[in-house]
């Protein structure tokens, strides 16, 4: 199921629960799958110096980011016995409480999906050139850094 062509992982704005639900629904025809695992990254309303984050505005070095997502996908398929894998990341404004990252892995067996999902999410956080501007309620901002 590896796709040699580089896909566009980015979506404009938040990833909706309808989109996520529909993705799950589409896998009903893939009956060799016995286990799915899903990671959803949600924008947190962090309080910093008395101000609360109301949204994150995401930008990316899109060509390099899509290449990195592709490399992560290839390496995950090589490492783990996965039936399929999907990654979606937001660009633009995502409000606190909304979903900005959706990673979906599927395999015949459960143990694989736990390991694979963690590997993929950590690789995304470390290797993909995505930038986040945390917008506060008073419209000031600071730049997010992954810890």
């Amino acid at each position: 199921m590896t796709n040699k062509k580089t896909k566009n992982v980015f979506q404009s704005g938040a990833i909706t629960s309808e989109f996520i639900g529909n993705s799950i629904y589409k896998h009903q025809t893939k009956t060799s799958i016995g286990a799915h695992n899903i990671f959803l990254g949600q924008v947190r309303a962090d309080e910093i110096d008395g101000k609360t984050v109301s949204a994150i505005e995401y930008t990316a070095y899109e060509d390099m980011a899509n290449q990195k997502f592709h490399d992560i996908r290839e390496s995950a398929f090589a490492k783990f016995d996965l039936t399929c894998m999907h990654i979606y990341h937001s660009l633009g404004t995502v409000k606190a409480g909304e979903i900005c990252l959706f990673v979906f892995v599927s395999s015949p067996r459960r143990k694989v999906v736990f390991e694979a999902l963690e590997y993929i999410v950590e690789a995304i956080k470390a290797d993909v050139p995505v930038f986040g501007k945390e917008i506060f309620e008073d419209e000031s901002h600071q730049w997010k850094v992954n810890s």
């Binding site: 995401y58 070095y61 060509d63 390099m64 956080k125 290797d127 995505v130 930038f131 997010k144 992954n146």
Partner: peptide
């Protein structure tokens, strides 16, 4: 610094390919 979409050290030779200056990543 990325050259031709790959991270490089400051001692790397310029090839003429696109250069990008990338602040800390914040994906996910």
């Amino acid at each position: 610094v990325a050259q031709n979409q790959e991270l490089v050290s400051k001692e790397t030779k310029l090839t003429g390919a696109e250069i990008a200056l990338l602040p800390p990543f914040a994906g996910g």
